[in-house]
């Protein structure tokens, strides 16, 4: 990413978070307000500085985008959306059913197997079942760690 763009994005993010906290910070009183006020105003100033720095950098250097590692944004989007769906499904389907579904679907979509589709599906099922068993044995049975309960299972 171009350094100027990176500065603008970072400044925008920090400024956005500070603005999100600003209304409640102003309403705070007494000792509860000391640290949040210092932080929010400091972050607003800092973000303005970063944005200005980024704009200056972008205008001054007409350099092209810096080459970084190639990123497959579609795969990131898939795992991100899949994880959100998984967390939404867990309280309904129960932890193990939703985990098995998540593991199997994600492995099917994201993993490129060399062999046939049937072989790949079997491998993905084995992976999903094995993971669920390991987590169940390790967390549930040995350590008695509670898992998210589901409405259906």
């Amino acid at each position: 990413m171009h350094k100027g763009v990176s500065d603008i994005a970072a400044g925008g993010f920090i400024g956005g978070v500070a603005l999100l906290f600003l209304p409640e910070t102003i309403a705070l009183e007494g000792v509860s307000a000391v640290l949040p006020k210092l932080l929010v105003f400091g972050m607003l100033l800092g973000s303005a500085y970063l944005i200005a720095l980024g704009v200056v950098r972008k205008v001054r250097s007409g350099e092209a985008e810096e080459e970084g590692e190639p990123t497959a944004m579609s795969r990131i989007f898939i795992i991100g959306a899949g994880s959100i769906a998984y967390v939404l499904a867990a309280p309904v389907l129960g932890f193990y059913v939703s985990s098995f579904t998540f593991l199997f679907i994600m492995a099917t979509i994201l993993l490129k197997h060399d062999g046939s589709k049937a072989k790949a599906a079997v491998l993905n099922v084995i992976f999903a079942v094995l993971m669920c068993l390991v987590v169940w044995g390790g967390f549930d049975v040995l350590l008695s760690v509670p898992t998210p309960p589901g409405i259906l299972f």
């Binding site: 994880s83 492995a107 994201l110 992976f127 987590v135 898992t147």
Partner: peptide
């Protein structure tokens, strides 16, 4: 890919275990 997906599952159970809170 297997490791990455498994980390998501471990992250879910690991974070839930702390306060039993989604």
């Amino acid at each position: 890919t297997f490791v990455a997906i498994a980390i998501v599952m471990l992250s879910v159970i690991g974070s839930y275990a702390i306060r039993n809170n989604m």
